[in-house]
Amino acid sequence: MEMRAIYADCLDKLMQEDKHVVLLDADLAKASGTIKLREKYYGTQIFDCGVAEQNMASIAAGLSSYGFKPWIESFTPFASRRICDQIAISIAYAKQNVKIVGTDPGISAELNGGTHMSMEDIGVLRSIPGLVIFEPVDGVQLKAAMPVLNEYPGAVYVRLFRKELPDVFPEDYQFDLFRADTLRTGKDLSIFVSGMLTKDTLEAAEALEAEGISCDVINIHTIKPIDREAVLASAGKTGAVLTVENHNVIGGLHSAVLETLAGEKIPVKAVGVQDRFGEVGKLPYLREVTGLTVENIIKTAKEAAALK
């Protein structure tokens, strides 16, 4: 099942249960998978703001101040860098309860290309005080997270892969917004991974194990605030770190992990987008040109482990 379908089903349930849950869109309801909810909620709980994302963000803040629980959605670049000031002031500074959903993160924008391929959204938003940044890795986690996000009384940026992702978590998964999830344990290397590359990282860890490098694989679903305890405990145990993310290596998970480990004498390597813009292409091509492949995770993991 596609992530957007799970997202839409969850919103349906939340809106059904509480008429104060509202959804604002900026002409991308089809892409976000929420168009099907319009028959039930349009004009009462769903509103299309048209191609005007800044207005959408501040309207959501206004609705929040009136007791509503607004969700807003757009493609990742338009839900982050385009509305950065609105997120900072109308939403975060004003302490409003708005959930900001950015779809198609990083290279997953595929054929929309460089203009729509946000490699920097986490970096842009991470320095806004108090803003929570969450990136689900599969449908199980997304489904578990949606009601938690809805009830969380503050601003959250949700970095949502739209299409289908392989399951990482079992059906009985217990979600905690502020606790990272350990997916695999090892002793030689800690791999911290976010988003769509989690399954690939587990595959890489399997191959590394066969070559004698055993890895902790920890999913950092909430990049801010990062689970410092989990990062420090694992890195302290293994003594070497690799970060894996579908984002610029500047400003995202890699930076968050480095900040957490500042002062610790632990080597850290990164698999991520190397400070470049995106381009058009399908995922296999884009993975190759940005180095977001299982092979590159294995290669970089070995380099990181060798630095100990």
Partner: peptide, 15 residues
């Protein structure tokens, strides 16, 4: 941050 309060007011009016 100019312009934003007006949109917020529109959101409040909708609310």
């Amino acid at each position: 941050s100019l312009g934003q309060g007006f949109s917020c007011a529109v959101g409040v009016a909708l609310g």
